[in-house]
Design a protein around this nucleic acid. Sequence first.
DNA 1: ATGGGCACCTGGCTGC
DNA 2: TGCAGCCAGGTGCCCA
Length: 271
Amino acid sequence: MPELPEVETTARGIAPHLQGRRIERVRVHEPRLRWRVDARLADWTRGQQVLGVRRRAKYILIDLTQGWLLVHLGMSGSLRILPDSTARETHDHFDVELDSRWTLRFNDPRRFGSLHHGEGDPLAHPLLAKLGPEPLEPEFDADYLFSKTRRRRVAVKILIMNSQVVVGVGNIYASEALFRAGIRPGRAAKSLTREECGALVKAIRAVLSMAIRHGGTTLRDYVGAGGEPGYFKQKLFVYERRGEPCRKCGEPVKHRVQGQRATYWCGSCQK
DNA sequence: ATGGGCACCTGGCTGC
DNA sequence: TGCAGCCAGGTGCCCA
């Protein structure tokens, strides 16, 4: 499900419920997530206080008095805040029970999500250490992207989805950003001019921040922190619009598979 | 260093 | 109605 805007929305949604609370206990019902959840996690977190909630790439980082929890939602995961530990449903894999009596509950049908814990600097964790810049931070600019694209023959869509180049650009927003920038997804990264890199940076920023403002793009099974279905996806120009008229020029939207993922673009608006 | 492909899972939809 | 086949928002890892 979640692309960066959904993760950001989730992090913002749960933060006020977690901040300053003490963890009564963590119950792991299904440890077989993308990586097996460490059984010691439950004991280790007991009684710790939540200092804050952050996002890095699509990871949600929960800072504790000693160490941290790291959650990834994978393709189909969600975190919700519930007023108590009510009856569990299918695919509810872990609960973080708080001293407020509220519970943070993780549900993930496909189990591509993950839960880690650790001490010290969480950004030094192997999953986070090699990540590229955040797309909404100033260091992600035209010069940076231009330098990263030199001598890369990969398709530009593949490149912007590479988290070592820039984090948080998922399959939906990759197609959408390239449409806005007027760049075909199949172009070799190194064929982009500096100006095109600038336009692409701007487009990625615009698409992601707009989606955050709208609470994320809801497709299928996404639910926000309070369980609300979230916003709908009428703002999308090309994603999942194969054969439908381009919203700018009316040409049918094209589709192909790139790196095993669906890609959409307009053959006349994108060069 | 780079690129390509696979793997991990379940569920929903389509078409026979 | 049943069922096989295909597709899905992510991303780490292995191999060439």
